[in-house]
Design a protein around this nucleic acid. Structure first.
Lengths: 349, 349
DNA sequence: ATGAAAGCGCTAACAC
DNA sequence: GTGTTAGCGCTTTCAT
């Protein structure tokens, strides 16, 4: 707004106008102490007249709590994270909390910086989806005694409450789906090594392959961007005995894989089946609908909030690690393998 | 983190340990006044030893500026908004500002509530994408003298700096693209009436139709969700003389239109061309690639930040309204009309 | 039930 | 250059 920068009214001015003490105004506002009706009304009138808005900063400083929580995610542009943040914001708003949102852009240094800033601002709690989760780069040292829950990644880090999908179960289920459709040459497109959630997803895939007696599990690491995933899986699809199915391990990998398939003038599911990870609105819009493993964002968000509330109430309870089950959305991009398609260089024929 | 809730150190404790005055510690920290090297070192040591983190709250209260800016968007799950927020956060981080992010969920009441909360927290500035922009529901009264820029919508509201796409030019260009491809029965799928940006988009479309001598411009309002857009345009596509092209006016409309087309077992671009609004990563992944009008998020974000900086420096400058040009991404979902397709009930044959 | 006063942690004046 | 002091706006004893 332009102009009109009339200094914000303070509680003393309200008190003066209403002819009471500042403390009384405070009592009216917080409702912690009863105030006689006539005075109450006078105070309320004065507030309205001066357009008084309490200074939350001052209140926080005095009271020791800011009613705000910090959230750090690698990339809010990723539907998984934007969806998660939305759930968290919904929960927060309901309890009168506010969200300070920061992005780490997958950089451990950025992340530490962001966390420090959040701590500096006295957030009452922290919800972090760490960029890396080795112990030395973990946020351990930056977070000093602030209630924190780690989400999605880094649940391996000790001493924190964590919430994450049941990754191993999810990819086990996904790989089984592919295997049931007759696929044997299934390439798993992972993102970056060293992320706990990713290692679990790889492990679920391997287990399913092993259970099915398929010895040549094939994992390729495509990195954290769509383009790097595309180029990694493209090489794979160029090979003579190319996979009949690609199992993408995350949102960027799903997009990268779809892009690679198209770039080679192949089609899914005709030439290769594609199973994605993370659901998104467009996956049920453009054909073929993309089969995917869905992480339930609402449950994830709910668990985060619950755990954070719990720790904000009582700091010295043992950390809990909550797992959320994923759902297989079998749609059109995965289909039963057909013998006729592509060259056969293996014994399976 | 669990346990270890040792009270945060204060500046006085640091001062005591370093054997200096609190003011000196402050001088070391802010760098506004020179401090002799030996003392400086003592202070730095004490800070490290106590793991001292400045209380930004106290600093803000004293200094009068919080170095934080509030952002209110209708829905951070929409790629347009998440992308915009990302740009803004990038800018903010570079200048040491932090983002308080709130969602209004298209509710004017929620929005007012959120803005009040932000003001209460003494944000230094506000960037708002209003849910409705009629004057009475505008945030006018909630924002008291805080530097504010309105983005995307509501640039009609007087007295605010605004940043928005050049909507009319964008849809003019889009509709022309369709017309050049031979389309005459082009339905414009708007979202909600009463949003200034939407009215401009409608107007650009109408102008293009008129310029081309096509009298029956057809605008349908589909609301703000994918589903409501889908059902609105679906009716349209069921008609006998159904449109040969749909021009969607926003992200949700694009998705809704694509969904409707598929639901009726039609295909784009064969049966009907589809021109979307707002770009998204998947649009160049799944075939056919979706033709769209792209709003340059970086420029939008840049302009917002620039205008906000300017107003934070000097409150009493006249408001400016910045327009950002959009780009037509002609891809595969729009194609030259072919005579043979569908029933012909009009004179154009 | 209400008023007075202290103080949350920090910084900007002002002394020295 | 460094120490001292006051006070940002609020809440919360402690008197009354």
């Amino acid at each position: 707004m332009v102009g009109g920068a009339n200094k914000a009214a303070t509680i003393r001015e309200v008190a003066a106008l209403a002819g009471v003490a500042p403390g009384t105004v405070s009592n009216v506002l917080t409702g912690k102490k009863l105030v006689a009706e006539p005075l109450r009304k006078a105070v309320l009138d004065a507030i309205a007249q001066l357009d008084y808005r309490p200074n939350h900063l001052a209140s926080s400083l005095r009271f020791g709590r800011t009613k705000s929580i910090g959230i750090v995610v690698p990339d809010m542009t990723n539907p998984f994270f934007s969806g998660l943040v939305r759930e968290l914001e919904l929960k927060a708003a309901k309890s009168g909390f506010q969200i300070l949102l920061m992005s780490s852009y997958e950089e451990a240094a950025e992340e530490r910086e962001r966390i420090r800033a959040l701590v500096s601002r006295q957030v009452d709690g922290l919800i972090i989806s760490p960029s890396r989760d080795s112990i030395e780069t973990s946020p351990h040292s930056a977070i000093s005694g602030i209630p924190t829950v780690l989400v999605d990644r880094a649940f391996a880090v000790e001493g924190f409450d964590t919430v994450s999908a049941d990754n191993e179960q999810a990819t086990l289920m996904g790989a089984r789906h592919l295997i049931e459709l007759g696929h044997k040459r299934i390439t798993f497109l992972a993102t970056a090594p060293g992320l706990a959630n990713m290692e679990e997803r790889v492990s679920g895939y391997r287990k399913a392959m092993q259970d099915a007696g398929v010895s040549d599990a094939n994992v390729v690491y495509g990195g954290l961007s769509i383009e790097s995933c595309r180029s990694a899986i493209e090489q794979e699809l160029r090979r003579a005995g190319r996979p009949t199915a690609v199992f993408a391990s995350a949102y960027v990998a799903t997009l990268g894989a779809a892009k690679a398939i198209r770039a080679l003038d192949l089609a899914f599911p005709q030439d290769v089946s594609l199973l994605g990870f993370d659901d998104s609105d467009w996956m049920t819009v453009l054909r073929p609908y993309v089969s995917t493993i869905e992480q339930p964002l609402d449950e994830l968000g709910h668990a985060c909030w619950e755990l954070l509330q719990r720790r904000m109430k009582k700091m010295d309870v043992p950390p809990v690690h909550r797992r959320i089950a994923c759902t297989l959305r079998a749609r059109e991009s995965t289909r039963r393998i057909r013998r006729k398609s592509g060259p056969r260089s293996r014994s399976e024929v």
